[in-house]
Amino acid sequence: MKNPEEIFELLKKEFGEIILGLDKDTPVDPIISVDPKHIQKVGAFLRDNEDFKFDNLMVLSGVDDANGTKTKDEDGMDTISGGTLSVYYHLHSTKLKHKITIKTSTYRENPEVESVYNVWRTSDWHEREAFDMFGIIFKNHPDLRRILMPYDWEAGFPLRKDYKNPEFYQGMKVPY
């Protein structure tokens, strides 16, 4: 069993600057930040290494950090440009009984994160959901299409903070 500080030190030793930092100033468990282009090999290492054995991806969630510059349009709706979208990975080891949270941030304008489909098969639908709701592109995902919204949904990604709902979908009025 390892605590987050120890895990961070071991990862830092193995991967160097790919591991961006450890955020201890959170109301929950400390969060390790990782470069989005190399999350797959970090994940494989966390799963296979004898000290970690993170065999269970409990959840993968997308987050809109909404930290770009906001501009209001004439309806008072926000449009955000710049800033980041993030993906959080909550890992658990069923063998060593420890947990860790991994975070990776990517650019809002071109949100690309490496898929961890090859490491934890659970991430298949979770990544599809993050794509569906936030528009995060998971590179090397075998089947990245919408999972909850209709396949022909063109209005954007609903959980982004500057999302605007369309007036009509297939001839049906959408607002109340």
Partner: peptide, 11 residues
């Protein structure tokens, strides 16, 4: 509810 039809009588 961005995904909800506001009343089935619309369809």
């Amino acid at each position: 509810g961005y995904h909800v039809l506001k009343g089935i009588d619309r369809v």
